[in-house]
């Protein structure tokens, strides 16, 4: 502590690395930090759900059907007597897992393909980009629905279905980044010093294109969450009884006139989670934008 305060009194403006600077700017952005806090708290609640609520997501209390919010059931119960709050917490697991794992798949496919395309250029690049064009010609969400029908309704297959469609954007982004970086001086320098293709890609090009990728991933997480919720909402998402906010919204929608709160809680939770990711994404983009660096 003493050392930190001493460092702060040095009159010279401290020099930071790109990431250090970005972190400082991100910390100053209250909306982004609020979003991050919301996501972290929700994640903790989802992980420790069994400690927070005595109910499980599948447990039916047929004597307590469609109850209004009470001390016993803070958000009421659904038509099968399941506790809405418990289902909301466990549903957060589904949403967050969809958000994170689809992006993992997206990165596993998109990053290498984009890097190869951008670095190799020429014919390889041409073929890959033609394929990407074909992917763009598909309506995203309908292709996901089709893939989901092929792969089945397990949650892992949902990750795969979304990931198999969403990697295209990252691949394009990485390709563009690498193409523009490729011509820059530090890459020529690495080449002159005898760096080979793979080495240059992994050691110099990828780390330098990481900023926009992080921002893009942050924005893609809520899109994946939305896609899963939408699929579950129209009844082709994760298979019950795995709880999903989209499915809860569908259940509530059927009772919109009599029990509106059933609909309200998952709808608001979904909206807030998406908003939190957008705030975080905006904050990251502003923080990592090198044009703002002085």
């Amino acid at each position: 502590m003493a050392i930190v305060s001493k460092a702060q009194t040095v009159p010279v403006r401290p020099h930071h690395s790109l990431w250090g600077d970005a972190f400082i700017r991100l910390r100053r952005n209250y909306f982004a930090m609020g979003g991050l806090a919301f996501i972290l708290i929700l994640a903790l609640m989802a992980i420790f759900a069994p400690l927070i609520t005595p109910y499980t997501f599948a447990e039916q209390h047929l004597d307590q059907i469609l109850e209004s919010p009470s001390w016993q059931h803070p958000m009421g119960t659904d038509q099968l007597g399941r506790d809405t709050f418990a289902r909301l917490l466990y549903g957060a697991r589904t949403s967050l897992m969809v958000g994170i794992f689809t992006q993992f798949i997206v990165l596993c496919i998109g990053l290498p393909i984009g890097a190869i395309s951008g670095y190799a250029g020429g014919r390889t690049d041409n073929y890959i980009m033609r394929f990407v064009d074909v992917m763009y010609a598909f309506p995203d969400i309908l292709l996901i629905i089709l893939l989901r029908s092929v792969l089945g309704g397990s949650i892992y297959m949902i990750f795969l279905a979304i990931g198999l469609v969403a990697w295209v954007n990252i691949a394009r982004l990485v390709r563009g980044q690498i193409m523009s970086l490729k011509s820059r001086d530090f890459v020529s320098a690495a080449k002159t010093m005898g760096g080979t293709g793979n080495y240059i890609t992994w050691r110099h090009l990828l780390p330098n294109s990481l900023g926009p990728v992080i921002v893009s991933v942050t924005f893609n997480i809520p899109r994946a969450i939305f896609t899963e919720a939408a699929l579950s909402y129209i009844g082709i998402g994760v298979k019950p009884p795995t709880p999903s906010w989209g499915a809860m919204i569908q259940d509530g929608f059927n009772l919109i006139f009599s029990k509106p709160y059933m609909l309200l809680f998952p709808a608001i939770a979904l909206a807030l989670l998406m908003l939190a990711f957008t705030f975080l994404g905006d904050g990251l983009r502003d923080a990592l934008d090198p044009r703002l660096r002085h």
């Binding site: 709808a267 909206a271 905006d282």
Partner: peptide, 18 residues
Amino acid sequence: ATIFASVPGFVLGILLMM
């Protein structure tokens, strides 16, 4: 803009409907 860019359309629809 941030709110409408993040709240899913069908959630918005449900809220409006309510």
